[in-house]
Structures are given as structure tokens and as C-alpha cells.
């Protein structure tokens, strides 16, 4: 999956075929991921386009028949961090306190801190869920999207994000606790959970 791997040398016909059959089928997931990172339709379009053009340019680093979706997501994530966030008009929304608390706690805490109930969760509507997810800092939001929405394995996530599997697990755990807190706050404000 990494760019340092053995280079292939595909013909133009092969390149077009790989692009059509292995890359383009993931465009729906890619666009939704991009939108959840940028919160803007035009930015999401640009990011997806940039990702696909890069993927094509570096196609010789891709081994046919391997995990194209993870490879594309990795390029998209890196494009977002390296180029896109700098160019974007919007400053990144980061809750530094959250990030700091997270990086200062290296142990995975096992706790049942939430009073959130299954019935409350089941009553939530799309906008409420979306607001809670979008309120998370981008690193936390990303692992939830990759794992719960896109169904990537821990190992795939580790490659997409360039972090060890242990970090994937602890970041997921932390992200889910933060999401529960947001949902809980929301539920309280709506008078659920009495």
C-alpha cells in the first residue's frame, strides 16, 4: 500500500482499466468522506478530484487487485492534511482541549461513564447524529467514519492513517466516548433520558 513499494509498469490501456474498474467504483464513499472532512460540497469535489488525479499519477505504485479503497482513502486523507487544509478558506475547527486531553492520556480507560440509553440513541434523528459527529475534532471524526461508516478493519485504518494498531484502538475508544458525551448533552437539552 505504501508508495515505496515495488513499481509496476502498466500500459495506458491497463491504467485506464484499473482506474475504471478498481478506483471509480469507490467514488461515492470518497465523496462522502471528503464532505465529512470539509463540510462543503465544492471543497469535497475538489478534494476527490485531486485524489483521483494523484492516484492516476502514482498508479505504478499501486498493485492491481490489492486494496484500492484503502489506498484511495489514504491519498485523500493525506491530501486533506497536506495541501487542502492549508488552501481552504476555513480554518480547521479543532478543540485543542479535547486533543490535549487525548494525547495526555495514554492508557485506554475502561469505564462506563455515560448515562446514555439505547432508547435515546434509537430516537435520534439524522441531523442530531450528524451534528454530534461533526462537532468532534477531525482526527476523532475520521476514525469513526473509517471504522463505523466505511467498515475498514483496524489494520486498514492503521495503514490509511499511518499510526500503529494500538493507537487506532485508543483513538477509536476516545472518539466514541466523546461522541457519547455529545449525544448525551444533546439528549439532556431535549429533555430525553429523564
Amino acid at each position: 500500500m505504501s508508495v515505496e513499494k515495488v513499481k509496476q509498469s502498466y500500459s495506458d490501456v491497463q491504467k485506464e482499466k484499473i482506474f475504471e474498474t478498481e478506483f471509480l467504483p469507490h467514488i461515492n464513499s470518497m465523496y462522502n468522506f471528503a464532505y465529512r472532512l470539509t463540510f462543503d460540497e465544492d471543497d469535497a469535489k475538489d478534494l476527490v478530484q485531486e485524489t483521483y488525479l494523484k492516484a492516476f499519477r502514482f498508479l505504478n505504485s499501486f498493485q492491481q487487485g490489492t486494496n484500492a479503497k484503502a489506498w484511495l482513502f489514504r491519498i485523500l486523507k493525506n491530501s486533506f492534511i497536506n495541501d487542502f487544509r492549508k488552501k481552504s478558506k476555513q480554518p480547521p475547527k479543532i478543540d485543542y482541549q479535547e486533543v490535549e486531553t487525548y494525547y495526555n492520556s495514554d492508557s485506554v480507560d475502561v469505564s462506563m461513564t455515560t448515562d446514555l440509553r439505547v432508547e435515546t440513541v434509537q430516537h435520534m434523528i439524522g441531523d442530531e447524529v450528524s451534528n454530534a459527529l461533526n462537532a468532534l475534532a477531525v482526527d476523532f471524526r475520521t476514525v469513526i467514519i473509517l471504522c463505523d461508516l466505511e467498515g475498514f478493519t483496524y489494520e486498514e485504518m492503521s495503514k490509511i492513517l499511518d499510526i500503529p494498531i494500538g493507537t487506532v484502538r485508543s483513538r477509536l475508544h476516545r472518539s466514541r466516548n466523546l461522541l457519547k458525551e455529545k449525544l448525551q448533552t444533546y439528549a439532556k437539552s431535549m429533555g430525553y433520558n429523564k
Binding site: 434509537q122 435520534m124 434523528i125 447524529v129 459527529l133 461508516l149
Partner: peptide, 10 residues
């Protein structure tokens, strides 16, 4: 249920 909620309601 949280996982299901994310998969079905977003």
C-alpha cells in the same frame, strides 16, 4: 446501537 445509528441515520 450507536454503530447502527451512525450507519443508518447519517
Amino acid at each position: 446501537s450507536i454503530k447502527e445509528m451512525l450507519q443508518t441515520k447519517l
